[in-house]
Design a binder for these strands. Sequence first.
DNA 1: AAGTGAACCTGAAGGC
DNA 2: TGCCTTCAGGTTCACT
Length: 297
Amino acid sequence: MPELPEVETVRRGLQPVFEGSRIVAVEQRRPDLRFPFPPDFVASLTGRSVVSLGRRAKYLTIHLDRDPVLICHLGMSGSFRVLSESTATIPGDFHYERSKNEAHDHVVFHLQDAHGASHRIVFNDPRRFGFMLFSTAAALNEHPSLAGLGVEPTGNALGGALLAELLRGKRAPLKAALLDQRLIAGLGNIYVCEALWRAGLSPRREAGSIVATTGRTSVRCERLAGAIRDVIAEAIAAGGSSLRDHAQVDGSLGYFQHSFSVYDREGHPCPKPGCGGTIARIVQSGRSTFYCPSCQR
DNA sequence: AAGTGAACCTGAAGGC
DNA sequence: TGCCTTCAGGTTCACT
């Protein structure tokens, strides 16, 4: 499910509930997800207070009043939802979103906030590609999951010059290079397809071919860097994309999926004014790519 | 060494 | 209805 905008949406949804709350209990309902839980998972979290929630690429980081830091990844189908006692009709009865299969509720955090109100945060993940691991605060950036991640596509860090540097000499298809988390961290299948369409660049093109050979910054790199920043910022503002099931933590849906130009739109007309092309689906490194063969060169 | 494909796992959707 | 195949927002590992 989740690329950077969805994970950021989750972070913003969980933040007001987690921050300043104490973890009074943790239910860990199975020994593993994609990886085994840390052996001291429950004991290390119980009784701790949550100081802040962070995000790096598609990883959520939960910072406590002392080590460890909890690193969470949602995989393809992971989601969090918040159940607050205050929204229940009966005290002690937590409002429960029953549309999801409870068999895949793998972790439940029981929280008490600064006002004494109780909350539960439930992690659900049918495919179990997600995971939760520990790090220390001091070595967080050297944790195997986070070390080696590339630049965030948010803010102004990613510009044409940096993108050119990252892609120079790369023989892989442009699509594959943009999915490489060591170069740009947080893009996934949807937003790569959308950014390439916005930039008018073919996903099949050799990545290094958009880098100017002379010293001048490539106009294609500038255009692509801008398209990436724009699509990510717009998607975050829209609360992410909700496909099959992905929801915000209160169960509501993001709405960026309504803004897709190419993703999952095979056979539809290209939305670029005057283009007249038809969106095609091809497979690159085992994954669907959607693009317009007419205006993406 | 960079690049490609399979593996991990479950559920939804479509064809017959 | 059921059975089969294909596909899904990601990462990692094994291979060329």
